[in-house]
Design a protein around this nucleic acid. Structure first.
Length: 730
DNA sequence: GCGCTTTGATTTTTT
DNA sequence: ATCAAAGCGC
């Protein structure tokens, strides 16, 4: 097989060609990392390594898909179609979770799982935790299931079993977690379910329990590559160490400045530890940046240098200096959105079509004002993330039906659908049949008889239950002779869900329900992509994809629209023009990070990631006040702005002049134009930072006529007559 | 027992 | 401001 190694600098070429032994590639932002990884894989194949001996782990499924396409393009071949499990013809590419799910799909019997296991997402986990707490008679109000889910997940990613946890637990809350954790584990096992963390930890457990299994995968995955290594957690790290132990052909690629998933257990020190874990590691630094202009790069370098927990490196580019970064301070989030629109229109007129723009924000909630403004000016946009498709109630309902068909022990799914649409099975009834449900696997008729004998259930409910059991059996039977898409139709109709949505009794909800039905059709069309395999396999693969997919995976850069997404979602992407909005203290950096230096550094890395997405132009903005939770919040400008050298930044302050005109023409309510001693015009708004001769620094909270309420850092809140007081704007 | 209204929480980021 | 879970009347 032939391939050409194209456009590689010396370091990159070395990274591609060093195929044997441990390699650590420290790849700065925009250093051509993807090019290196794909060429490396293609190079291996071209040198005769069978594709299936290669395991490449990426951060998203989307990245894996793209990688696959690029590798085959380099090899001059068509990428293989959707492949079932580990195929002989293609390199294995996927996220940790999807790779592990595939291993477990084949091997879970060795761990004692009775049935096809189901993957629990966060809301399923919450339901299971709630159930565990009820079993233990713990108050779900005092200890929120959400927090316990988080604690359990952290424990799992640190490879702490319930027993380990009991040794570690010291606080009252942790003692509660300890109890819930073991009960939760029992519930999940009984229900044939695994949560996200289990996918990794159970694979590890499998390898520990069964050395032959480990051995077979070790010899299968002869060449291992892990992208975004700085975002691996302890469990993932152990897994990799185990798999690579024999051949030691392990290539880790990462950048500790881009570690932004510490909150979910990622530990960028794994990157630093690599060299000691794998002796004789070849370290290759990629520091030449091919993405951004000098100005953008320099600004980003200066910002990230404020972090103490890092290994210094020097990203550089041969590229042009480029425009200065632009910073705009807006009045509020509407004004901020208008600024974004204004800039996009200017640039769009020149040459850049809409796909060259991305707006990055810290929290999904910030997308709303942007969305409204884009609608107002009729600009095409797409929001990545936010309310996810697979989290919509109707989708979860239909998926819950499929899950129950696939694994009838999945009680979280069963509970969701047993009375949806309403069929007269109440909470009380449900509680009583749960202990009997196990019999479903052995003998459905026995289950029915036992239910029939229960005295505490009404005849109506009994009949309803019997009908439901028959319905489920009918669905299961149809897996044998229907395609997955047809099955979804059959389920929607047979369960009464379709009628429930489309029956005309809900006249005012008609449109909403029709949209829901459309979503189900959309789900069906996704399912149809799996028609190449037997329905039982298709069902498994489909459910797996549904539970592991993220929204960025669906991001399609083909359509010409402005992208809106969180800074987290933007990792790995690049755009000609990048806007980072909401650069305010409490928002970006987020309020929850203010007290913890390590978290503050993670915020800074996140900002660094956001900045380095930009190829040509970078726009930064903040607001003086914004609506948050229905009330007005006033924040200081983000510290990150002040970390950018002045000479790289063009400041566009929200037109004091424009406001001056507005306010003097009679409409000024919250603002006062005045003259201070130096007879400079100051225009004070809530959010402005001021300096008072006596009280020092402060922030304007409220304006009433010429009286300002100012919060001083040293002296608390004072009311000040602004036209008399010795005060000036900072 | 069902479906609607009210309440209460909720928002950092996601596999 | 918005959305999901709990309460209340039919």
């Amino acid at each position: 097989m032939q391939m050409k190694l194209e456009n590689l600098n010396e370091k990159q070429l070395e990274a591609v060609k060093t195929t044997e032994g441990p390699v650590l590639i420290l790849a700065g932002a925009g250093s051509g990392k993807t090019r290196v990884i794909t060429q490396r894989i293609a190079y291996l194949i071209s040198r005769g390594v069978p594709a299936y001996n290669i395991l490449a782990i990426t951060f998203t499924n989307k990245a894996a898909g793209e990688m696959r396409e690029r590798v085959y393009k380099l090899l001059g071949q068509e990428p293989p179609k959707r492949v079932k499990y580990f195929s002989r013809s293609a390199p294995n590419m996927g996220t940790f979770h999807s790779i592990c799910a595939q291993i477990l799909r084949k091997e879970s019997k060795k761990l004692g799982y009775k049935t096809n296991f189901t993957i629990y997402d966060e809301s399923d986990q919450k339901a299971a935790v709630k159930k565990a707490m009820e079993n233990l008679e713990l108050d779900t109000e005092q200890f929120l299931p959400k927090n316990i889910v988080y604690a359990i997940s952290s424990a799992k990613s640190e490879l702490m079993s319930p027993e380990d946890y009991s040794r570690y637990a010291s606080s009252f809350f942790q003692e509660i977690v300890e109890k819930v954790y073991s009960e939760y584990e029992r519930i999940l096992f009984d229900q044939g379910a695994m949560d996200f963390d289990d996918l990794i930890t159970k694979t590890l457990l499998l390898f520990k329990k069964s050395p032959e299994t480990l051995q077979s995968y070790q010899s299968y995955f002869k060449y291992i590559l892990v992208d975004e290594y700085q975002d691996t957690n302890k469990a993932q790290y152990e897994l990799i160490k185990m798999l690579a132990q024999v051949h030691k052909n392990i290539c880790a690629v990462g950048d500790n400045d881009q570690s932004i998933y510490g909150w979910r257990g990622a530990d960028f020190r794994n990157l630093m530890k690599f060299e000691s874990d794998f002796p004789k590691t070849k370290v290759i630094m990629l520091e030449e940046n091919y993405r951004s202009t000098q100005n953008i790069l320099e600004a980003a370098n200066k910002v990230i240098r404020n972090n103490s927990l890092r290994k210094d490196k020097n990203l550089w580019t041969k590229g042009e200096k480029g425009d200065k970064l632009i910073y705009f301070q807006a009045r509020d989030e509407k004004d901020e959105a208008e600024f974004v629109v204004r800039k996009i229109r200017e640039l769009e007129k020149l040459n850049d079509d809409f796909s060259n723009f991305v707006i990055l924000y810290r929290t999904n909630a910030q997308s709303r004002s942007l969305e409204e403004t884009f609608l107002k000016y009729d600009l095409p946009y797409k929001i990545i993330g936010g309310v996810r498709f697979y989290e919509r109630a109707e989708i979860k309902d239909i998926v819950a039906y499929l899950r129950t068909i696939y694994n009838p022990m999945d009680l979280v799914a069963l509970e969701r659908i047993i009375n949806m649409p309403a069929r007269g099975i109440t909470e009380k009834t449900w509680r009583q049949i749960v202990p009997l449900w196990q019999e479903y696997l052995n003998d459905k008729n026995h289950l029915k008889k036992n239910i029939d004998r229960l005295k505490t259930i009404s005849d109506k409910a009994k009949k309803s239950l019997a009908r439901f059991i028959d319905l489920l059996a009918l669905f299961q039977k149809s897996v044998e002779d229907q395609k997955l898409g047809e099955l979804i139709d059959f389920v929607a109709k047979g369960s009464g869900y379709k009628d429930f949505l489309l029956s005309p009794k809900n006249e005012d909800k008609k449109l909403e329900n029709e949209a829901r039905w459309e979503n189900i059709q959309e789900l069906k069309s996704v399912a149809e992509e799996f028609h190449g395999m037997p329905t039982q396999d298709a069902l498994a693969a489909f459910l797996e994809e549904v539970s592991l997919i993220s929204d960025i995976d669906q991001y399609d850069n083909g359509t010409k629209a402005i992208s809106l997404m969180t800074a987290h979602s933007a990792k790995g992407l690049e755009f000609k023009n990048v806007f980072i909005v909401g650069l305010e203290e409490n928002l970006f950096p987020h309020s929850r990070s203010l007290l913890e230096p390590t978290e503050m550094e993670e915020e800074r890395r996140l900002f660094y990631v956001a900045m380095t997405r930009a190829k040509k132009r970078l726009f930064l903005s903040s607001t003086k006040q914004r609506m948050y939770f229905g009330s007005t919040q006033r924040n200081l400008t983000s510290r990150f702005i002040s970390e950018i050298p002045e000479n790289l930044l063009d400041k566009e302050v929200a037109g004091a002049l424009a406001r001056l005109k507005q306010k003097t023409s009679g409409s000024g309510l919250n603002s006062k134009i005045l003259q201070n001693q130096k007879s400079a015009i100051i225009d004070l708004c809530p959010g402005d930072q001021v300096i008072h001769k006596t009280f020092g620094e402060g922030v304007v909270i409220k304006m009433e006529g010429s009286v300002a309420e100012i919060a001083f850092s040293q002296f608390g809140i004072k009311k000040i007559a602004v036209d008399l007081a010795p005060i000036k704007k900072k």
